[in-house]
Amino acid sequence: MNELVGLVALDTQGMIAVFVSAILFAVGVLGVLLRRNAIVVFMCIELMLTAGNIALVAFSRLHGVEGQILVFFVMAVAAAEAAVGLAIIIAIFRHYEVVDLDRFGILKW
């Protein structure tokens, strides 16, 4: 049992979940790199966090509930990040009147 490497130990649903996680993460990366709207970029970051959560839950079937506990903390961090990030977006919007990422490349004003 110990020399098994890879997905041999996961069942069908676990395997599907892990690959869905990889695909969702790639889609999130694509969104972060391709979109200009800061809010949509932010949503893509949330998508990538969810992809990580799926992988954690899938592997928690092999390793015990620690994975699900970690998901709990990931969600707390995501909530904090969403609150602060959206506040920053509002502050930027007050100054520039846009949320287009190409329009504020410099960090000073």
Binding site: M1, N2, A9, R61, H63
Partner: peptide, 10 residues
Amino acid sequence: MSRQGDVQLP
């Protein structure tokens, strides 16, 4: 990536 020995399953 694979199950190790005596983890107690969830």
